[in-house]
Write a protein that binds this DNA or RNA. Sequence first.
RNA 1: GGAGGCGUCGCCUAGUCCGGUCUAUGGCGCCCGCCUGCUAAGCGGGUUUGGGGCUACAACCCCAUCGAGGGUUCAAAUCCCUCCGCCUCCGCCA
Length: 437
Amino acid sequence: MIDLRILRSDPERVRASQLARGEDPALVDALLAADARRREQETLFSELRNRQKQVSSRVGPLRGALKKADGADREQAQRELDQVMTQAQELASEVKSVEAARQDAEADADRLLAGLSNLVDPRAPVGGEQEFRIIETVGTPRDFAAEGFAPRDHVELGTALGAIDMERGAKVSGSRFYFLTGVGALLELALINHAVALATAHGLLPVIPPSLVRPAAMEGTGFLGQAAENVYRVELDDLYLVGTAEVPLAAYHSDEILDAATLPRRYVGWSPCYRREAGSYGKDTSGIFRVHWFDKVEMFSYVAPEDAEAEHEQLLRYEREMQDSLEIPYRIIDVASGDLGASAARKFDIEAWVPSQGRYREVTSASNCTEFQSRRLGIRMRDAQGIRPLATLNGTLVAVTRTIVALLENHQQADGSVAVPVALRPYLGGRARLEPL
RNA sequence: GGAGGCGUCGCCUAGUCCGGUCUAUGGCGCCCGCCUGCUAAGCGGGUUUGGGGCUACAACCCCAUCGAGGGUUCAAAUCCCUCCGCCUCCGCCA
């Protein structure tokens, strides 16, 4: 959620952000009204409750006095007690109705606030998905025509290598599922080991988080808004399957106050990722590019808000280091405002070259969520300025399936074998080439 | 899955049976001050978090907060219900 003080003092800024996202600017005015109502009710309630407490606290002493009194005093005391009791009972029922009104107002304001996306960073290019800005292009796609053969796609290569089994994936689990076998399975382990080694070398703390989480974790990270249709829910146990380790890593410190001296905190989590891919029928239907489940190594940082921007650049540098080591051509884009998701203020994606498609496709994503998630999850920091929300950021180090797609296709040879980038060889028993079966 | 115990303001802890004197006790830690060659000790004060009022985003005042949410009552840490978490035992199990 955003800072209500910004909403009150500069609603135009929030409206502009909503418009840039292609979301409803009218939400701002509804929220402003709800916020005013909530404060009004709050004041009313606390004043009334104060009076009730004062009256109520006289009952005990009056009872005591009544016991000791006798004769005329006793009658007087009884009258006084009756009077106080009547007043207290009236106040109690009044408090009850005012409290109900207050709770309604609060729920309204909370609901509207929860539906408001993060403020877009003004530097993010404005527009829909296609309005991204290319920040940098690294490496040059191979000229397969010059090499004298047409590139095979990852399904063909993976099948020949005995690395990917789509048919049995579909048989066992349905469409968009797969088995990684033989060198495919080894490749996943190599990628994960390589990524985690890279991250720990930079001081990130490795974490293996739970991939089933409670509603609060999913809600707090902002995935139950527009993205809700892509989330798997285990209804019987009221749990959600995470679509990324970002979710448990963000909720890890929920409802905690972190000492500023312990910041930045950087984690690298390895988890399976589950995505329903609702509304993507017909998109990337073949192979393991778009699947319902894959494994991913994700970085996650908790930093002071003023350090968020620098951290965002830092995470992107780590991602680049990983990409560079895989020797695959890629480009970096500044994601358009309409494609940020509810939580991110700004997002940099790395898109790897996919030869069979002749275009760049997303393989990683680094998001600066500023204080949006920490406000929702109750994560704060304590420093000389006091207690305040901190910023959270996340970035993909390696999304296994898409990386395998890029690896196989970019490093394929005319004979159907695939060259192994130097950096991965130590994790594949020194192997320099994967051969068809 | 069954039975029992427990959850108090950073940590430990009093209070819960028998509702009001709880503005939640005490210790440790921490912060400020005094004292003091220095340090330690000692002494005094402060120390949950969120919201609201008033404002200079100060001080001050009010409300909520004793795992969470409901309920009973004039009044709930205290009584009742539901849920969550931890511990012990039994059963089952990778």
